[in-house]
Amino acid sequence: MKKAKLTDSEYLVKTGKILRTKQMTKLEKYFEIALPGGENLEHEPGQFVMVSVPGVGEAPISISSSPTKRGSFELVVRKAGKVTGVLHTLETSDTVGIRGPFGKGFPTQILEGNDLIFVAGGLGIVPLRSLINFVIDNRRDFGKVDILLGCKTPQDMLFGEEVDEWSKRLDVNFSCTVDRADPEWKGNVGLITSLIPGVTLDPERTFGVVVGPPIMYKFVIIELLKKNIPERQILVSLERHMKCGVGKCGHCQIQNYYCCKDGPVFTYDQIKDKKEAL
């Protein structure tokens, strides 16, 4: 058996240095990561990276920061398995392996000039934040912006301070709901779908961007369709088991799509007839 070194393998990792961490909830931990020499990740909002710990393995993680943030990028990791469990033990100045960015992100060129309604449920805010902050940083390039957030309880709200900032902005409309409130909660109580009927929008020039747990999509999409937003203007980001990130290993396949390569962002139009998609 002969052995050769490869310089152009898709499986080569870059060393990411952890600049900052924050335990956000019991299950979610935030990481700010820099590549060697401050190289920019050059991702599109909505893309993901494969994060690895040598000897443990790799996991696909959504990029949570906007590409307008230079010099470093941000991830939020939910503790759910072997790799993410070990990632939770890492702290500032530890290193991780980074491959990517991978996949098709949100089509910012197509969104330019249009009105946007963002709908994020639970962890959906993690990938969607990359687009929301991109839009806020390029605010005049987009039309009216509505942000609708939902989560189980007020304690589960990620990026609380930043979400507060969004809610105070005059150039975006913000609303938020929780399934179960606590005495301090001043916002809405109920499912995220209940926020949609109250939004006024021009369906011809509005794009709905929906990210959340699988169960949420169906119901939110019904509400957006009721508002007459065309199917091809509704964008979703899907979660699948991923191993390679480059459209080969088969784990993430949704009928003829590889979620990692053809997605994770899809238009509703693309996936509505794919039985295993939603």
Partner: peptide
């Protein structure tokens, strides 16, 4: 702190 991509093959 090193990682190398490799190929193992046999003619």
């Amino acid at each position: 702190n090193s990682v190398e991509a490799i190929l193992e093959y046999e003619k």
